[in-house]
């Protein structure tokens, strides 16, 4: 039993640790796009209807990344200039998802608002939640046209390497690059044209799911069968021995001996048919129709 418990705890801990590590992998974030001065007519506005400069953060991994607790700055000497609050579920970015941070100059406006405005010629840094490690940076050119963005483009969408940086039209909340609008099916057609990867992955997952159920129900089945119950020692306890002695003293005919022998056989070899609760009662059985009329009544709602 101890060994089984240890196995379960180890498995659970591994799964939990794996999940936790996956969720905290902020190194997969990049600053994918920055707009310093938005277009005065057509622009991406914040929740207050204001057109400020903005920074797009993109999760290039296949897992969920939470950037709550990270910092954004335009000052290499002050890496904790503007912090992203923790505890907001919206800071969790799914695979290949992005979020826009508004450089309004007032971080009290909400989770996605920074306490500085973007200036041309400066570099924007995304800093890890330790306040020391720079995750990614993007320089804003001095000559960046108003209404234009400086953006990173992925030439290799499979590896998600964003090594092409140039000025472009702003595309907030969407993947930069030529494959940005591809459907999952199109991506799969390009990355796995013969379907071998998807097949291998899917078969593995189906087996994994059913193996997990097999293990769980295997263990629970053993528990319910009583495999892990402590075995009877085969010895008669003192109370039983005293009862047998008393019975033998009172009556010494053969029938008594036979009855005691049969009872001992059943007791010691656990061949008793079932364990009775010895409680006699009338219970409300769902299989019984005895109060069927009552079952059809609707209960009055409580106030």
């Amino acid at each position: 039993m101890n060994r089984t418990l240890k196995t379960i705890i180890t498995l659970a801990a591994t799964v939990f640790a794996g999940t936790a590590l996956r969720a905290q992998n902020v190194s997969d974030l990049i600053i994918s796009e920055v707009v310093a001065v938005p277009d005065s007519v057509v622009s991406f506005k914040d929740d207050f209807g204001q057109a400020n400069g903005w920074i797009e953060v993109f999760n290039k991994s296949q897992g969920t990344v939470n950037f709550g607790g990270c910092f954004v700055t335009d000052d290499i000497h002050n890496l904790k200039k503007s912090s992203i609050p923790k505890g907001d579920l919206r800071t969790k970015l799914g695979p290949r998802q992005s979020a826009v941070l508004y450089a309004s100059g007032d971080s009290r406006q909400g989770t996605f608002y920074l306490n500085f405005k973007i200036e041309k010629g400066k570099t924007i840094y995304l800093v890890s939640n330790d306040g020391k490690s720079i995750i990614d940076s993007l320089g804003v050119p001095q000559n960046l046209a108003d209404g234009k963005a400086i953006a990173k483009f992925a030439n290799d969408k499979k590896e998600m390497i964003f090594d092409d940086i140039h000025e472009a039209d702003p595309t907030p909340m969407s993947i930069n690059g030529k494959h940005g609008s591809e459907s999952k099916s199109q991506i799969m057609a390009r990355e796995d044209p013969h379907g071998y990867t998807l097949t291998a992955t899917s078969v593995a997952v189906v087996f994994f799911a059913l193996i997990i159920l097999y293990i769980i129900y295997g263990i629970s089945g053993e528990i319910f069968k009583g495999t892990f119950k402590r075995k009877k020692s085969g010895k008669i306890d003192d109370e039983t021995a005293a009862a047998i002695a008393m019975a033998l003293d009172m009556d010494d005919n053969g029938e008594t001996y036979a009855a005691i022998a049969a009872a001992l056989e059943l007791y010691l070899h656990d061949t008793v048919h079932d364990n009775e609760s010895f409680v006699l009662t009338i219970q409300d059985s769902p299989a019984s129709e005895w109060r069927n009329k009552a079952l059809t009544f609707r209960k009055a709602p409580r106030n």
């Binding site: 097949t199 059913l210 097999y214 129900y217 295997g218």
Partner: peptide, 23 residues
């Protein structure tokens, strides 16, 4: 199924029909 959980694996193996047809 509950009484013979090992037989679940057969249910997994038979899903190969799905992926064979996919290929």
């Amino acid at each position: 199924l509950i009484s013979q959980p090992r037989l679940m694996l057969i249910g997994a193996a038979a899903q190969m029909g799905i992926f064979g047809a996919y290929l």
